[in-house]
Design a protein around this nucleic acid. Sequence first.
RNA 1: UGGGUUAUGGUGUAAAGGCAGCACAACAGAUUUUGAUUCUGUUUGUCUAGGUUCGAAUCCUAGUAACCCAACCA
Length: 552
Amino acid sequence: MSEEKNLNFLEEIVAADLEAGKYTSILTRFPPEPNGYLHIGHSKSICLNFGLAAKYGGTTNLRFDDTNPVTEDTEYVESIKEDICWLGFNWAQELYASDYFDTLYEYAVQLINKRLAYVDDSRSDEIAALKGTPTEAGKDSIYRSRSVAENLQLFTDMKAGKFKDGEKVLRAKIDMAANNMLMRDPIIYRIKHAHHHRTGNKWCIYPMYDFAHGQSDSIEQITHSVCTLEFIPHRELYDWFITKLEIFPSHQYEFARLNMTYTVMSKRKLLQLVNDGHVNGWDDPRMPTISGFRRKGYTAESIRTFCEKIGVAKRENFIDLSLLEFCLREDLNKIAKRVMAVLDPVKLIITNYEDGKTESLVSENGPEEHMGTRTLTFSKELWIEREDFMEVPAKKWFRLAPGALVRLKSAFIVKCESFSKDEQGNINEIHCTYIPESRSYNDTSGISVKGTIHWVNAATAVEAEIRLYERLFMVENPAGEEAELRDLINPASLEIIRKAYLEPSVATATTAERYQFIRKGYFCLDKESTQTKLIFNRTVTLKDAWSKEMKK
RNA sequence: UGGGUUAUGGUGUAAAGGCAGCACAACAGAUUUUGAUUCUGUUUGUCUAGGUUCGAAUCCUAGUAACCCAACCA
């Protein structure tokens, strides 16, 4: 087939390795640290790692990189697993770097025996000082020449808990003059008397990332270990450990992480938003976390499509949020059930409609035939959207205005005859006459109107709270600003409408369903919704050509 | 000032010496009982300067810019 072409660079590598017979099948891994919730940037990595394996007939392990007990927690483990499943991926094995602590310890002992590691008593700041700078070579620690026997004894004592945190570290003995700072005798084990979420109090020494990640890959026989660009300098060390330990040669490849407009992607900043109360938790719909997007009503399908469209390369990128929203709308347009909801209501009274009379009207649930129809109740008093009426119509306005005709969706054409205002001067009632012959799908009136607006029957309307979300940040690139994060937050990121009117069919909504409130956007039920109080989140607005027209 | 990585429209991403393509965005129009969807069209690009070649985004030389590296984080 001709789609052989257009592979991303990682697919090319995998295809070439398979072609050359280097591997008979491939194994990738997704290696999160359980110290925070997954965000949209992780989606790219998840889709990439799982997608790569799936495309070439391999499998993917989920491995938690849990080497730092002070920041990690099972709460994060659970949320990460849930998010990956929700995205639609299945891992071959659920593994933990902590599963390998015994092996890793043995590897460290091997290095000591090969005179390739030593225990250093220096303080943290002393080690940093001797490390030099990128342009200046480092200097050897005075502990660098300890004997194998002494190192072995000290490392055993470290493990046995004979020292306090920070008193000693185990370092690889490589080259203090290396251009690559990571090769200047990196620390591979440090003392932390801390409870680990899986190994409990068994250990008081923990391996550093560089001494755990590559070896974990090797133990699992990962063929292609894919990570982000900032780990490029680590690759030399990654390979060094594999070579010196003479273990299975996994290989590391790096791609550019996802950056997106109007969002922050660092776990530190996301944690800060949560801890400082700028949002209501990790799954706040304004968060770029997978759980936040899920709660807001995004579909897994749309996120997968997005990750497909953004591509994979090694150059820094800054993806426009509108691409994600495009993927979302594309999916929602296909699956969302159309209903009517009035978010900012104003009363519309049909003066020539009989008091107390009601009639049933059939409306389609969506553009696709298979979505079916439902029945709406029509009567003399309706709610319509306040913004669909203009006392003094703008140019090109084709909604309601004094004397203007408009169609009520799936119902009748009405003509505005008059309106009234309250003491504050706000319009509180619009009076119309309707044209009985203009009944939808059976219109014999011969009148055609340019505008169609949505409405809800006042007597049978259901009340609901609606949460309207806007982007969390006011600036395109919050991470690139000097200002504090909190000063960049959009004060209008959440607007709560306490009382909106929905057509009664929505009263039985579930969080699994997706709705389009006609002309207002896509919405879904929030998890905080109850039987007595319906709460809906706006997932995304519809594209709005009129608001653009207005800005001109 | 050391080392590493990357440069293609506004944003992404293809083109492996042979017509710079695709998507989003923007803009214009058609259709529309959602100012949605759908459809049609338009604008905008090979970091710079030299060189090789019939022909260069691609090869060579020299520059320039951006990002990463000096946590007992990952």
